[in-house]
């Protein structure tokens, strides 16, 4: 090892690594470097754009699947929630409508069957849980 050098290991590393930044500092330098490596820049671009398109579609599909799964889970949770509500002795639909600010015609409430009430409430709580989930994210 030469001992009389003014350069340290850090200087050496800094020097070696400086080219990594240089060859990627802008589009033209990147093209120049890739061409010097014997690569076809046009192919890199066209293949890359195709791969990007596939990647975007794949991610979009994954997101849609995740959203559907999330909606299913929210619906299940809402259904259990409503079953629990309806089973309570002191359950009062008009009171719940006020608390939850449900848009419902009070004139029709008494005409609703138990199934109709459940459907309306499950729909309402599913949307509510999804909104809460979106806020948390």
């Amino acid at each position: 090892m030469s001992n009389n050098s003014k350069y340290s290991k850090a200087d050496f590393i800094r020097f070696v690594m400086s080219t990594v930044e240089h060859v990627s500092s802008d589009k033209e330098k990147a093209k120049e470097f890739l061409s010097a490596e014997g690569l076809d820049v046009d192919s890199i671009i066209s293949d890359g754009m195709k791969r990007l398109k596939r990647l975007k579609m794949q991610i979009e599909a994954e997101k849609t699947k995740a959203e559907m799964l999330s909606a299913e889970e929210a619906k299940q949770k809402a259904s259990e929630w409503v079953d629990d509500l309806l089973s309570k002795i002191d359950f009062s639909l008009p009171e719940l409508v006020r608390e939850e600010e449900l848009t419902m015609s009070f004139r029709n409430i008494e005409k609703l069957s138990q199934d109709d009430i459940k459907k309306i409430l499950v729909k309402h709580f599913t949307l509510k849980f999804l909104e809460e989930q979106a806020k948390r994210q």
Partner: peptide
């Protein structure tokens, strides 16, 4: 995107190649 792809290709290729120095 084309610029991103080209610059990342160059950066990664060079980064990987530099390992020989170390």
């Amino acid at each position: 995107w084309e610029e991103i792809i080209l610059r990342l290709q160059s950066y990664t290729r060079k980064l990987v190649k530099e390992k020989g120095w170390f």
